Simulated scan of single mutants.
Amino acid sequence: MITTSFLAAASSLFALSYGAPVPRTNAATPRSPVERDVSYTIFGGDGTTAQGWPQKSQWVDFDTQFNAVKDVINTACGNHGWGANNDPTETESIYSGIVAASESTGVDKEFILAIMMQESKGCVRAPTTNYGVRNPGLMQSHNGAATCNEGGNVQTPCPQQTIHDMILQGAGTITGFGLQNTIELSGASDVSKYYKAARIYNSGSVDASGNLGAGIATHCYASDIANRLLGWTSMSESTCNEGAIGSIGGSASNGNGNAGTPVEEEPEEEIPKTEEPTTPNNGETNPTAPKAPGAASGCQKWYTVQSGDTCENVAKASGIDFNKLKSLNGGLDSNCSNLWLGYAYCISA
Rank of each mutant, 00 (worst) to 15 (best):
C240D: 08
E266Y: 07
G176M: 07
K196D: 07
Q169I: 10
N258A: 10
I174D: 13
I167S: 14
L168A: 13
H164I: 01
G257I: 04
G213W: 11
T233V: 05
I163E: 13
T261C: 05
E237K: 12
G176D: 11
I271K: 11
N211P: 02
R199M: 04
G255M: 11
S234P: 01
L185T: 02
T162N: 11
K273F: 01
N256P: 01
Y221A: 07
A226T: 13
E265W: 05
G249A: 07
I245M: 09
N202K: 05
V263K: 00
A244L: 15
I271E: 14
Y201D: 06
I200H: 04
P157D: 10
N202Y: 04
T173G: 01
I248S: 12
S253I: 00
A171M: 04
G204V: 03
T175K: 07
A197N: 10
T239Y: 14
S205W: 04
I216P: 00
A214E: 10
K196Y: 04
Q180V: 00
T156N: 13
G172M: 03
T274S: 07
D190F: 01
I216T: 14
C158H: 07
Q161N: 13
G151W: 03
T261D: 11
A171Y: 09
I183H: 00
I167L: 15
Q169L: 11
V191H: 07
A217N: 14
G152T: 05
T147P: 02
S205K: 04
K196V: 04
S238L: 11
Y201S: 10
N258W: 13
G257R: 11
N153E: 06
N153Y: 01
S186G: 00
S251N: 09
T175L: 01
D165Q: 14
T218E: 15
I271T: 08
A226K: 09
L185D: 01
Y194D: 03
S234H: 14
N149P: 09
E265C: 09
H164D: 14
A252M: 14
P272T: 05
I248Q: 15
G255K: 06
G215D: 09
G178L: 01
N258R: 10
V206K: 01
A197E: 03
A214W: 01
A197H: 12
T261Q: 13
I216D: 08
E270G: 08
P272I: 02
G213D: 06
E264F: 12
L229I: 08
I245C: 06
Y201K: 03
S247N: 11
D165N: 15
T239Q: 12
A252P: 00
I248E: 11
T218F: 09
Y201P: 00
E275G: 11
G246Q: 07
T147W: 08
S236G: 07
E270K: 13
C220G: 06
I183V: 14
G178A: 03
L230M: 13
Q155M: 12
G250V: 05
A244M: 13
A188K: 14
A217Q: 14
Q160T: 15
D190P: 08
A222Y: 06
E268F: 14
N149C: 08
M166V: 09
I248N: 12
T218W: 10
Y221V: 02
A222H: 04
V206N: 02
C240Q: 03
A244G: 09
A197K: 05
I163W: 10
S192N: 07
S253N: 09
G151V: 00
T156A: 12
D190Q: 04
C148A: 10
C148Q: 09
Y195T: 05
A197D: 10
E237P: 00
V191Q: 07
E275K: 15
T239P: 09
G215A: 12
